[in-house]
């Protein structure tokens, strides 16, 4: 069914929190999911896949061991949310010509919204690439995927299958990047009911069961509103 991007962001935030992410990362997950949905990508499905993959596992296992050199996660697969957030936090390095290279990334499309935040701050386009010949990501000519954003629009090169891949051996983030044939975002998105239920199951973990104690202590609005 059709959902507003606000609904998608709210549901994603609760779901990510329910899967054990810290609130700040849950917020990042939610904004990223919303951003992808706004460009017509199934962000909510990707998020549900990722949350199920790493459900309640320690975030540190899927985080870069170090921000120097190529980024690798101790568990052998990298969270796109944690590495994406770190990439955005380190965005200034890309202006200095440094390419941020991240290995063994789960659902790499979830990194791209962070490039958008980085691009807004840097004031230049940021490119995210994966797959293709030599795994460097060379856009359509070499196979592979190249997504470029200036924060407001998104340029896409590559096949949908590769864009939606569940795993990339290597993801490269760089700036400044040229914007070619950009897409502009939309304001609502379709999320299928199964996906909404998967996210809802995670979100449900954040709701406190009502207790007699809470009722006695006056939680919520009273039932009697007569004067």
């Amino acid at each position: 069914m059709s959902h507003s991007l606000n609904e998608i962001e709210a549901m994603s935030k609760r779901a990510a929190r329910g899967a054990g992410l810290a609130w700040g990362l849950a917020e990042e997950a939610a904004k990223g999911t919303r951003w992808l949905a706004g460009f017509g990508y199934p962000g909510p499905d990707l998020l549900a896949d990722l949350l199920e993959l790493n459900d309640r596992l320690p975030a540190i296992d899927f985080s870069p061991s170090s921000l120097n050199g190529t980024w690798r996660a101790p568990a052998g697969r990298m969270s796109p949310l944690i590495s994406g957030a770190a990439m955005s936090d380190c965005a200034m390095r890309m202006l200095d010509g440094q390419v941020i290279t991240i290995e063994q990334v789960s659902h790499p499309l979830l990194i791209v919204p962070f490039a958008s935040g980085a691009a807004l701050r840097l004031g230049v386009g940021v490119a995210v690439e994966w797959g293709g010949v030599g795994q460097s990501g060379a856009g359509q000519s070499g196979g592979g995927v190249r997504l470029t954003t200036d924060g407001k629009q998104l340029c896409v090169q590559g096949s949908r299958d590769e864009i939606m891949t569940a795993h990339a051996r290597e993801v490269r983030c760089s700036a400044p990047a040229q914007m070619t044939s950009p897409n502009t975002p939309i304001t609502r998105a379709h999320v299928d009911d199964t996906c909404w239920e998967r996210l809802g199951a995670f979100a449900h973990r954040t709701y406190a069961p009502a207790t007699e104690a809470s009722r006695i202590l006056g939680a919520g609005a009273g039932l009697n509103d007569n004067d």
Partner: peptide
């Protein structure tokens, strides 16, 4: 960025 990498609980 270095601090948050080790302490994501403070990101919010």
């Amino acid at each position: 960025a270095e601090f948050l990498l080790r302490h994501p609980e403070h990101r919010h």
